[in-house]
Computed example of a mutant assay.
Amino acid sequence: MVAATDRQRILTAADRYLSQKPLTITAFPAKRSAGGLHDFFSQADYFWPNPKDPDGPYINRDGQSNPDNFDDHRRVMVALSIQMPALTAAWLLTGRSSYGKLAADHLRAWFVTPETRMNPNLRYAQAVIGVSTGRSYGIIDTLHLVEVARAASLLHTQVLSAEDAAAVKAWFREYLAWLNTSSPGKAERDALNNHAICWALQAAEFARLVDDEASRQEIYRRYCEIMLPNQMAPDGSFPRELTRTKPYSYSIFNFDGMAALCQSLKGLTPDPLSFQLADGRGLKKAAQFLYPYLKDKSAWKWAHDVEHFDALPVRSPGLLFAGVAFHNSQYVDLWKSLNPDPSDKEIIRNYPIRQPLLWV
């Protein structure tokens, strides 16, 4: 069903990407970064110069992204996350070597080749001028590597040599270790909102790629015992997301992240997609809460987002994963009807799963 729905979309995109060579962060030196050429750098979105002290530390304006921030590293990582999975999906559909070869070229450029690879950490992500050279919140930036890792797990030796495949896995194994052991990684893991879900989704999918079953089991335990009880209300809503200046987008974002996490953890028992607490809280309850507002945004009962409200909703992977898991054709039909390729930059930044063919 997913292949039939997305086949033409996938092939059209992949044909467009065949002419675009891999580009990594090393092509864009970040003068504001405290790191080096191979270190990913970004600035915290919602921080701006202080009008009362223009040369002093930046101040927070929640929900309002600063357009003057350095964005090149994010931009090329997002491009990787769009192009490489689309090429992989096209290769799976057609078997054409040109798609698979270029997908493998992206992996080599980012994670293998010494001259262009990224260092496997995020020490300098979401920096705040005059305050911090990097913050734990920045780990959410590599959410765009989740589908890259998923795609990498599907490429065979036909297009990726055993040596290169081992090198890619070594990169993700090292990055997973940094997520699990570094102070920023542990702080993000212990967050009380969507950041913890995004940490878990990354860690789960990277662990899946490198066959780290112990990490997958531990992530699932944290989801069941910590994240789900502390983040979801009995009605399936996410109270901490509803208090933000973008309650609609953050609610959808956390739902999609939670659904993708459960999809990544498939194979563990009890089934992550069907798991629920004693009071019924689980992915099914979250889908029941959000579905009416994805179907009809005008029914949304909370504040409108301060930015980009008109660009939502887009195609929600959570709808697909929940629809398949719970045999709910309404969810799947709505998923089919929504825009799969948003053009709004802010929506794209919070939209890491674009090729569900790789997931189901």
Rank of each mutant, 00 (worst) to 15 (best):
R9K: 11
A14G: 10
D15A: 14
Y17D: 14
Y17Q: 13
L18K: 13
P22L: 15
T26C: 08
A34T: 06
L37W: 06
D39N: 15
F40H: 10
A44P: 05
D45W: 08
F47W: 15
N50S: 15
P51R: 06
D53F: 06
D62F: 04
Q64W: 13
N66T: 05
P67Y: 07
R74V: 06
R75T: 15
V76M: 10
V76E: 11
A86N: 08
T94I: 10
S98P: 00
G100V: 14
L102I: 05
R108M: 00
W110R: 00
T113R: 12
P114L: 06
E115A: 14
T116R: 06
L122Y: 00
R123Y: 01
A125D: 01
A125V: 00
Q126S: 06
A127Q: 05
A127G: 09
G134S: 09
R135D: 07
I140A: 11
I140W: 02
L143I: 02
A152F: 04
T157P: 01
T157F: 14
Q158Y: 10
L160G: 05
A162H: 05
A162S: 14
D164C: 04
D164I: 09
A166C: 03
V168N: 08
A177E: 07
W178T: 03
L179M: 08
P184F: 04
A187F: 01
E188F: 03
E188T: 08
A191G: 04
L192P: 00
N193T: 02
W199N: 02
L201R: 13
A203D: 01
F206Q: 12
V210F: 04
D211T: 11
E213R: 07
A214R: 13
S215C: 15
Y220P: 09
R222Q: 15
N230R: 14
Q231E: 10
M232Q: 15
M232C: 11
G236N: 07
S237I: 12
F238M: 11
R240F: 02
R240E: 08
E241R: 09
K246R: 15
Y248D: 03
D256S: 12
D256Q: 14
M258I: 12
L261A: 01
Q263R: 13
F275L: 04
L277W: 13
R281E: 01
K284A: 07
A287P: 11
L290D: 09
Y293E: 07
L294N: 05
W302H: 13
A303C: 01
H308G: 00
F309H: 09
D310I: 03
D310Q: 10
L312Y: 02
F321A: 02
G323R: 10
F326D: 06
N328M: 05
L334P: 11
K336T: 05
P340G: 12
R349P: 00
Y351L: 04
R354C: 02
L357I: 10
L357H: 07
L358G: 04
V360R: 01
